[in-house]
Design a protein around this nucleic acid. Structure first.
Lengths: 182, 182
DNA sequence: TATTGTTATACTCTATAACTATA
DNA sequence: TATAGTTATAGAGTATAACAATA
């Protein structure tokens, strides 16, 4: 990467005029908060997803292919934010566990369509219940309307971020969140 | 990990009564949204933090020790959610760059107090400005009040998660699956 | 004996590159 | 030539274990 200006450490080492920091507490840093909450979720969901190949990723493959229909591996990888090579390993494990199947794409013999098996769908129901409990516990300090707000705002940010990517992800928009929750 | 019941894949492979999935779209999954947004932030902040040893972690060390005063490595590691061995390497790099200093703790000769140098404070000011711009860009699709709401809600969740126990909150949250959970 | 911090090692996750089979 | 998927390999990041100094 060509940097037009010296990097932070270099400039700092020169001892440029020191000035008082604004003293923003780390708690106000979006990156810190995102990291803390994200790590908490990964750890917490790890218990709910114990035994599922791929953990959170495995769940997302099941949930996506179940709700949106069979998908090609490349599309699935893009939507879930993983490399296509990682997707191969992930699907290998899920297939071995009998949770998904690779079917030939009638429209393109190079591609494989990924779909959950009957067992995969059955497992998904169980996982969704556990995950919802985990999520609710994590959001426990927020009241009902705050939870809904947080979910909605986060979801909007995520969908926007996902749409920015040079991918095909245009189908997801009419999202009903979860008014039927509880 | 002792699992009292067969894992997901094992149970699914047995072919237990298949039933219709609830069809929750992956966009409604908190884990998916958190992952997407977190990855986006890491990627975006990478540009703002270019040249800073440790990237986001390096910034958090500077921000924390600047706003909360000198801290011992172990406390810093716990607060930032990294292993103490990782903290050693991170501080090595930050110290070499002249951004922080290790001072002996007068109260405990085993411990070191981490404090930003003058250069570190100066660099922090610059970083805070850049990061704030990055954050605002990422939250771009939200209006002012929505941004404030999201920041507040996320911050409350993060502070709660961090308060439980920065190192062992996974164990606490693992019990969220119990029916006794609220 | 327990704890702080360091070091060396090993492991996990992810990305890069080369390969095949199709298009 | 370009693309979907696979495989092998390398790299970054992280955790585990052993160690020295101190409590």
């Amino acid at each position: 990467m060509s940097s037009p200006s010296p990097d932070v450490a270099t400039r700092a080492a020169r001892g440029v005029e020191p000035q008082a920091a604004s003293g923003v507490p780390v708690e106000a840093d979006l990156g810190w908060a995102l990291g803390v909450v994200f790590r908490q979720y990964v750890k917490a969901s790890g218990a709910a997803l114990e035994g599922l190949p791929g953990g959170p990723r495995g769940y997302q493959v099941l949930a996506t292919t179940n709700s949106e229909g069979p998908k090609r591996q490349l599309d699935l990888a893009a939507q879930l934010g993983v490399d296509r090579t990682v997707m191969t390993y992930l699907l290998d494990d899920l297939e071995k566990a009998g949770l998904v199947q690779r079917r030939p794409d009638p429209a393109d013999r190079r591609a494989r369509l990924i779909a959950p098996t009957e067992q995969g769908i059955e497992a998904l129901c169980d996982l969704e219940r556990k995950l919802r409990a985990t999520e609710d516990h994590m959001l426990g300090i927020l009241d009902e309307s705050e939870r809904a707000s947080f979910r909605m705002l986060l979801q909007r940010l995520a969908m926007k971020a996902n749409a920015i990517d040079p991918l095909h992800n245009a189908c997801v928009l009419a999202e009903a969140d979860d008014p039927a929750d509880t």
